[in-house]
């Protein structure tokens, strides 16, 4: 091992002083990633853009139709409904998930470092969306599920959950909160453990309450973690798919037909590849726009701290 690396070192040495060697090494190092990027990100994105101007059902050659798909989606109520539902889903999912994760982290920070407790909290996140969705589909069954059993034994009315157009999207959000709250808590916990303890000690000496300390020490110092959590979870949440595919298939009454589900249905059930590509381009534009705005905001907040 060490012999071969010494040999490698010798091989590289003659070039190492020059700028060309640096460039050469750099490109050698990024080559695999660059190939992956070109083949599976850049090329497909261009190809998707190209497809979005065609009528293509996969079975026959694509037919160029100009902007027809974009005109069609502009008038497609179900497309806009999908966009609206995805946005609504993010609002149902993220605030509660972040809040639960945060409080759970604070609680754990105070009480225990036990690796067992942390493992249990993280466990749902380690299971796949498909599995988690199946488990909850069973527990939330309106007639046989254990959750409705609890509800009715408390004297309340039976709830349809995933079967009701008014509750289905919120229920899907609930299922994903269950899967992700442990993850969020872990990220916050890492942030909490970086906060110097003496800040709290000093605050206590001055007679601050728990809430004041949380409000004025914990929250502001958790800001970078908070930004990270929000950035990653919002983009993921906007693209919710697996859970819906397993539990509601977009129904009832289109109440969970979120944008990604609608696109995939068009592509692989209706075989409308061109139209699906056009919709995915619009979705991509929205996501890029969102990310750019977010980067602006983050940069602003960075300079704030400095």
């Amino acid at each position: 091992m060490s012999e071969s690396s010494r040999w490698l070192a010798a091989l590289w040495r003659p070039f190492s002083q020059t700028r060309r060697a640096e460039t050469f090494t750099a490109y050698a190092l990024i080559l695999p990633a660059l190939i992956g990027f070109s083949l599976f990100y850049a090329l497909p994105t261009i190809r998707a853009l190209e497809l979005s101007f065609t009528d293509w059902n996969m079975m026959r050659p694509p037919k160029f139709i100009g902007f027809d798909n974009y005109v069609k989606l502009w008038h497609d109520g179900r497309f806009w409904n999908g966009m609206k539902l995805s946005l609504y889903y993010v609002l149902l999912n993220i605030p509660l998930q972040t809040a639960i994760g945060l409080f759970l982290a604070v609680a754990m920070d105070r009480l225990t470092r036990s690796i067992f407790v942390r493992s249990v909290v993280l466990l749902p996140y380690l299971l796949s969306n498909v599995l988690v969705a199946l488990i909850w589909l069973w527990m939330l069954d309106p007639l046989l599920g254990v959750v409705n059993h609890l509800i009715t034994s408390l004297g309340l009315d039976r709830q349809a959950f995933l079967g009701s157009p008014n509750q289905a999207l919120a229920t899907v959000a609930g299922i994903n909160i269950w899967r992700h709250m442990g993850l969020v808590a872990m990220l916050f916990l890492a942030g909490l453990q970086n906060i110097p303890r003496n800040l709290y000690e000093a605050a206590m000496v001055e007679g601050a309450t728990e809430w004041q300390m949380f409000r004025h020490i914990t929250l502001p110092l958790l800001r970078p973690v908070m930004v990270f959590v929000l950035v990653t979870s919002v983009t993921g949440s906007f693209q919710i798919f697996d859970t819906i595919a397993v539990t509601t298939a977009g129904g009832p009454q289109d109440s969970t037909n979120v944008i990604v589900y609608y696109i995939i249905t068009n592509a692989f059930s209706f075989n409308k590849m061109g139209y699906a590509s056009a919709m995915s381009m619009v979705l991509a534009a929205v996501m890029v726009l969102y990310t750019l705005i977010q980067m602006r905001v983050m940069r602003a907040s960075d300079s704030d701290l400095a």
């Binding site: 069954d141 007639l143 046989l144 349809a160 995933l162 079967g163 157009p165 129904g251 009832p252």
Partner: peptide, 10 residues
């Protein structure tokens, strides 16, 4: 009949 929203999954 049972309400459809309750029987859909079962």
């Amino acid at each position: 009949s049972a309400p459809y929203e309750q029987t859909k999954s079962l």
